[in-house]
Design a protein around this nucleic acid. Sequence first.
RNA 1: GGCGGCGUAGCCAAGAGGCCCAAGGCGACGGUUUGCAAAACCGUUAUUCGCCGGUUCGAAUCCGGCCGCCGCCUCCA
Length: 492
Amino acid sequence: MTLNVYNSLTRRKEEFKPLKKGKVGIYVCGPTVYGHAHLGHAKSYVSFDVLVRYLRYLDYDVTYVQNITDVGHLTDDADQGEDKVAEAAKKEKKHPMALAEYYTRSYFEDMDRLNCVRPDISPRASGHILEQIGLVTILLKKGYAYAANGSVYFDVSKFKDYGKLSGRNVEEMLAGARVEVSPDKKNPVDFALWKKAEPNHIMQWPSPWGPGYPGWHLECSVMSMKYLGKTIDIHGGGLENQFPHHECEIAQSEAANGVQFVRYWVHHNMVTVDGQKMGKSLNNFITLKQAFSGAHEKLTRSYEPLAVRQLILNSHYRSPLDFSDAALFAAQSGYGKITETVKAVRKRMDTAKEGPIDENITGQLKQLREKFEAAMNDDLNTSVALSVMFELVRLAQKLLEDSRTTQGTFNLVDVLFDRLGGDCLGIVKEEYQQIGAADEELMDKLVNVLIEQRNEARKNRDFAKADELRTKLDEMGIVLEDKPDMTTWRTK
RNA sequence: GGCGGCGUAGCCAAGAGGCCCAAGGCGACGGUUUGCAAAACCGUUAUUCGCCGGUUCGAAUCCGGCCGCCGCCUCCA
């Protein structure tokens, strides 16, 4: 079995075969950094994080590039309107680059908490102005673009394949056009490659066509080419960017290079709130910082970052996710159950007796792994993959109930939690926060002294004393669990 | 108006012609265990997949119609 992914270009699930054996180049449209990341961003970047993680699980050598848009993204269509970053900077009375830096850091902070593996390269649009000017120059030379009044536009009529990704044709778009057309354009569907800057525009660069700044679509073409080559294996992004953004990327890149730009287009669906798309423009978004702290009117409590991650993985990346507090609450409960089980397994790994590994368990674990891989190979069916994690939880709990379970058996269970839940899904951590690694052993000894005292009291039917000990420990955040022939403890 | 998609239990959600009288999670209820609790475990919770027709030996899955919802066509992950 190999990985199959849904390719938006062919509208089919296809077997994934990279251009170069064993190597994968993947480019994902990153955020425009003019505000804190919200749950919509989380769905996007968690989805692609799982793709990258799974490719690495399959032993591919992956180069993951995800841009940071800090210039060129306008508030209106690609030709009118203000630059998003510049506008936000004006409001916050900061230099646009300071604002972009602030939100870039915020973004990485949130993604780290969601356990998204950092991209290998996070190129900034503003750091690639020369390359963007270079691409515009090539397009002009090849006759795919024209300069007008200090700006440069892509001549859509020259590129026959325009519309192949989003499945629309130029005539239809002309008929349905709702955008005010710039007088400089030959054709309403032409899009800006380079925009002339007015003198008071802060972010501007000199160019052969006068001072200006790049069009939004340009950066992704240029940066993916620079770091991954003219033809890349996978390009990821949100469904809402399929048109015009990705369509324009294809036009620019293929016109300039004369070769296929992207082999597999992977698009994820949107997060909605009350059935409406969550977005900055609708102002109905919940930022990740709000979700983690609970500081939002739609939230009844704070949520662990990985519970948010689990909510996202609970549905398919190509399905829309309608956000609700109830759904997040459920994900938090489920996530907590997995976490507690993993912690318990790891704790018992050290204390369990030595002995042979149960063959029956080995077989069951193998089946679980196969089921997990089959699900992931089928266009990253994380929903089913998660269900496998819960099957593993149930199996682990049964083993935990049994004092005869050996160290080796627990070890195998832990390996599966690590490989599947950790490496692939990113919901199982390598280490959970403890009192401090050095103190952990001491802590365990101390609590065990108290457990012994309590069990002594229980044996003597002195329940008042037993309950007092339990209550006191509970107040300190330590929960005791009485099993048939032993008592274990965990932190709350 | 054009293009694309969705509608599965109280909630989230997988399944895409027979393995489905439909995974998994949350919640609820009953039980086991326990001195009591907590946790865990076991069981119950959709004879049915928006509605109506059709194709087929067989449909949640394919086709047609209807109803409802969403995305894109303007910035948005």
